[in-house]
Amino acid sequence: MATTVQNPPRRSRLTWTWLGLVPFFLFAILFIFLPSASLFIDSFRTLDGGFTFANIAGLFQPPIPESYWLSIRVSAMTAVGGGLLGFFMAYALTVGNLPRWLRPVTLTFAGVASNFAGVPLAFAFISTLGRTGFVTVILRDLFGWNIYGAGFNLYSFIGLSVTYMYFQFPLMLLIMIPAIEGLKRDWREAAENLGASTFQYWWRVGLPILMPSLLGTMLLLFGNAFGAYATAYALTGGTLNLITIQIGAQMRGDVLRNPNLGYAMALGMVVIMAVTILGYSWLQRISERWLK
């Protein structure tokens, strides 16, 4: 009997503790879920309010698939390219035996560069690799190599990729350094002790252990580039047919002549981002389990 008496007051306290989270949930509902849900719902509506799959089907009519495809290519390209450069640089800074003082300097630099995006980043690359940019001119005047003549164009797929890489690889670097340092010295010694060469250690133990965080971080980079709008807009002025640029154009004026098709485009983006982030967190979980 005595033990059951304690229950009611505890239960009422529990309801009170939930109240502490009300402001946060209210904010999230108002400014995250309501806007997302209204985009979601109208993606499945005709202009008169009836239910339809026509908008989703419309995503597969030109030029929308091309937009998605270009965004995916730029994101994949910069995720893999930035990922590899960032990974190898992290490798160099951790196990490459470089001078110690390079490390804090590089980390600070990477922290800044990974947050340096948007309009100023576009300006920096225009000043460097634009038609009259610093490097373009040096290559032309000093080395006689006109990169624009050779097919390079900053305001194109390749130029945008080069620009995105500027914030992609430092992000990879920042995430991979702790991951590589999470490799225990004991693993390396155990492998050596069992007869493995340095290469065999990296191939069979080191890299496989890092693989989940390597791939996961690449997915993160993918999402990072996929959702980017400002850099692309400032660089190309909206001439490059990325999905974010398309959505922007739709918002500025109803270029698709169907607002609900615009909502469906946004929904498509969210779906791709969600799949990316799900993959990322799945890989992250494996990695955490291993490195515990």
Partner: peptide
């Protein structure tokens, strides 16, 4: 991370 800024502002305006 799932809802990019461009989608967020689209939804907010709507």
């Amino acid at each position: 991370f799932v809802i990019p800024a461009i989608v967020l502002v689209f939804g907010l305006i709507k």
